[in-house]
């Protein structure tokens, strides 16, 4: 109810006070506060219009109100978000993990992007394997959700609506990639986050007794910003972008998606499961770092733990 009211009042607001040109970007969920013909040049920020085109709007004309309700279920038009993770560049710096936790107000043990130590066979070298949610095109979690609390959007993103989720955890058993995290108890977050206007796009504040996971930060994408795990990575191991415009970026360099995946033999993790992930991996060849370096900022206990976990028992 509350949501509907909100949306409605926002629409009214547009009808009344905002000139036509700006109301075209109503769908992006950024509220234009004033837009008199600017007699002073202002910094422009890119935002995605409703038909998926990039338009520039005065920075001062924006305040952040996250998209909710039906808008958050539909997705950003014309976009297909993809991520490419370059395993050759990962050295378990764990910045993606901490940045993500910071952004979503997660406790230090809840990780929406996890870094695993993997070894495919006893003869091959171990490597670090950052794993966010794969935002599958055939998401097993979405299939099984009894109330449609988790859903697939047109822009490829799989989101969880914490205000719809009944906490049955079926999606957690259905996800073969262990991407989902249940909020077992109340988590202390900053005052600002606790009172934030909830949206499935921001996932803040998260709600106890519901399921959370990596959301590909669509609220950031609406402002043309990369997710924090991408910009946080000191080695530029994570690329993010729009498959439709064929451009991915790791924050410092941009590449053509098709070219990168083609040239570097990008692959899907466990493609045989038929889930069609939207996260691609570049194999850990010609690595920048020895995997041992990933142990640098770990305690002895953690090191031992990681080493043991890759030794197969049989």
């Amino acid at each position: 109810m509350e949501n509907e009211k909100n949306i409605k009042s926002r629409r009214d607001f547009f009808r009344k006070s905002v000139p036509l040109a700006i109301s075209a970007i109503g769908g992006v969920g950024l509220v234009a506060e004033s837009c008199q013909a600017a007699d002073q040049e202002e910094e422009k920020v890119p935002v995605l219009s409703q038909d998926g085109q990039l338009v520039y709007v005065d920075k001062s004309a924006m305040t952040n109100v996250p998209v909710t309700g039906q808008e958050a279920r539909q997705g950003i038009p014309g976009k297909k978000f993809v991520m490419i993770i370059d395993l050759a560049r990962c050295r378990n710096a764990r910045k993606c993990v901490s940045k993500c936790q910071e952004m979503h107000g997660l406790p230090s043990e809840d990780e929406w992007i996890k870094v695993f130590l993997m070894q495919d066979s006893d003869d091959t070298a171990p490597y670090w394997f950052p794993k966010p949610c794969f935002h599958c095109n055939q998401p097993p979690c979405v299939k099984v959700c009894p109330v449609g609390a988790t859903y697939k959007r047109t822009d490829g993103i799989v989101l969880v609506d914490n205000e719809r989720c009944i906490g049955c955890k079926f999606c957690m058993t259905a996800c073969p990639y262990s991407s989902r995290v249940f909020q077992w108890n109340e988590v202390e977050v900053s005052h600002e986050m606790a009172h934030a206007h909830y949206s499935p796009e921001t996932s803040v504040p998260s709600k106890v007794g519901t399921v959370g996971k990596c959301d590909f930060c669509p609220d950031m994408a609406r402002q043309g910003k990369l997710p924090d795990c991408v910009t946080g990575c000191p080695n530029g191991a994570i690329y993010f972008g729009d498959k439709n415009e064929d451009i991915v970026s790791n924050g410092t360099e941009s590449q053509r998606f098709s070219q990168l995946v083609h040239d570097r033999a990008g692959y899907h993790f466990m493609a045989e499961l038929g889930t069609e992930p939207n996260v691609y991996y570049l194999p850990p060849v010609d690595r920048l770092f020895d995997y041992e370096r990933g142990f640098n900022n770990l305690t002895d206990e953690q090191k031992e733990f990681y080493r043991n976990s890759i030794v197969k028992k049989h």
Binding site: K143, P146, A149, C165, I166, C168, F170, F182, G209
Partner: peptide, 26 residues
């Protein structure tokens, strides 16, 4: 026992409101 397993028992009626018949739980 299923109810004991549910994180948000207060939203039990959502099964009727938003039920998706693709889900084995439904």
């Amino acid at each position: 026992y299923i109810l004991l397993c549910m994180g948000r028992l207060d939203r039990l009626h959502y099964l009727a409101l938003y039920g998706r018949i693709q889900s084995p739980i439904i």
